[in-house]
Design a protein around this nucleic acid. Structure first.
Lengths: 295, 295
DNA sequence: TATTTTGGTGTAGAAAAACTCAACCTAGCT
DNA sequence: AGCTAGGTTGAGTTTTTCTACACCAAAATA
């Protein structure tokens, strides 16, 4: 029974948060992603926590990490704590500014699909202030100060999810380019434009047609759909497009569909609401409005 | 609808913790105390949080602070979150070292009352490793990595509290000094020793005797009971003692009670257990052992 | 078998956050 | 008028947190 050490300090909150994220996601790099830091930062947090607890929490296998059985048992407790904290922060945000809404979505959706809908929304509910955050990956709505997200997913819908539309893809190009294309084989001579987010959509589409291999080989891949689309508009090739994103170019005739085939992917565009939103009465109404304009 | 600001960051965890503590305790300095920092640190945390939320959370009255009505509503959410986090940390500690116990208590109890009890404990349960932390104020057992606390209090007992004994006080001194004391009035010529933690015990005791005012005026106040006791042992005056702390000196005859009067204060010595302890089965047994030896 | 890829580690240095200190302010007391 | 309790402020310092980048090992690929 040693006597009177200095007042013991608890572990650092940030280290606990890093632990929880790493444990929940099963990977340091995923945790790093969620917390917007580098993987090295996570490594260090976990290490300080392990030093504090005087016990290892993860086993490091060169292919990733795995929780210690001991640590495993603790994860739900920490997850509950940080979920509750996230809820509290959401409550604070809503309390302060009930009609400021943050919506996270893909850059391409933010640019080509949302603006028209948000315009409509502004007419229906002029007091709502929606700000749009463009992200490549869906954020964790419990933890981050974001109210809604709009992403493509194939996962089954949860209780806070609303399916907006199904993803339908088909090739598009300028009328000039289309004039050169009569049979699928003609694609061999064209540049196939693709977006890195959906880089195998060409394969999906082609394999749904009378298939003949080898066409989908090369092509130019762009990290932003907007860039690929721009190239298509300048006659730079044939783009595998998503219906939701190119409707207006088809309507205007600027771009056309050289082939009739449309592929319905199992992927859907889903509006996901933060847990805080579905609960609050005031916000349930906002949600209804948004579902309305989402059509 | 502004588009694509950088990914919004949540507030700093430490700022949230400071807010919760300040809100719960109703005072920045109390929060500073609980978190072992200076009041200035709390001020700054609250300010960054207010800047993040873009709204004031406290109204500053020169005599202290008060929560904004808006902030008021949020406190329970944050308290729940940090309570849950504290629980999780306790779970971690117990998981790692189930039989390491941290006990916080007053320096005087740690020095004069505990050692004999802990010795007994070591015989009953040799595998328990109890470490004692001396603190002036009872810690928050939910938040700090401490399992039990032993302090005097007049508050009613909660479900995790165990009354160990009632506080009984009386004057003591060396036999030499006692020889000079036959009537209460004789105290006027002696140095009245007192501990700053319980600085008005002399008044309590005197007013319980055939009261005559003015005796309790001066005296020497020591911040540590141990120092006052040491002075009494060297014949430096008459000390207002607590039964629990001086039993052994009375037994050995080194110190004596110059007057028969004993005052039973409404204050009791209470063993408080962290919420995690009462729940766990394994630790319920430890608790029983401790109650046993507490007698 | 060689090569690449994936996910984690280690360290140095830099940036950001958190803290202390000491002077200062204000309203309520004595 | 002076004192006190509680908070604030700003400068300066310490701690924490992060990044950058080189490195490592197994697994996947070729």
């Amino acid at each position: 029974m040693p006597v009177s050490p200095p007042r013991p300090k608890g572990p650092h909150l940030n280290a606990l948060r890093a632990f929880e994220a790493a444990a929940r996601l099963g990977s340091f790099s995923a945790a790093a992603e969620e917390l917007s830091v580098t993987p090295g930062a996570i490594t260090q947090h976990i290490k300080t926590l392990e030093a504090w607890a005087e016990t290892p929490l993860f086993t490091r296998n060169a292919r990733g990490v795995a929780l210690t059985p001991m640590a495993e048992a603790l994860v739900p407790e920490f997850t509950r704590a940080f979920d509750q904290l996230g809820l509290a922060v959401h409550a604070l945000r809503k309390q302060v500014a009930p009609n400021k809404i943050k919506l996270a979505t893909l850059p391409s959706l933010a640019q080509y699909w949302l603006p028209a809908r948000l315009g409509k929304l502004r007419q229906i509910a002029p007091d709502l202030q929606v700000s749009v955050i463009a992200l490549e990956e869906p954020p964790n709505l419990v933890r981050e100060p974001i109210d809604m997200s709009l992403f493509f997913t194939s996962d089954p819908l949860g209780p806070n999810d609303i399916e907006v539309l199904r993803d339908r893809i088909f090739p598009i190009c300028t009328p000039d380019v289309a004039a050169r294309l009569t049979r699928l084989e003609d694609l061999r001579n064209e540049t196939l434009l693709r977006d890195s987010t959906w880089s195998d959509d060409w394969e999906h589409w082609l394999s749904a047609q009378t298939d003949l291999g080898g066409i989908a080989s090369g092509g130019t891949e762009h990290s932003l759909f907007a860039v690929a689309l721009e190239e298509a508009r300048h006659g730079g090739g044939v783009l595998m497009a998503h219906e939701a994103l190119v409707q207006r170019f088809l309507d205007s005739g600027e771009l056309v569909r050289p082939f009739a085939g449309i592929v319905d992917l199992p992927r859907k565009l889903v509006l996901h609401l933060s847990p805080k939103m579905v609960r609050s009465d005031q916000l349930a109404q906002i949600r209804d409005v948004l579902m309305e304009i989402a059509k």
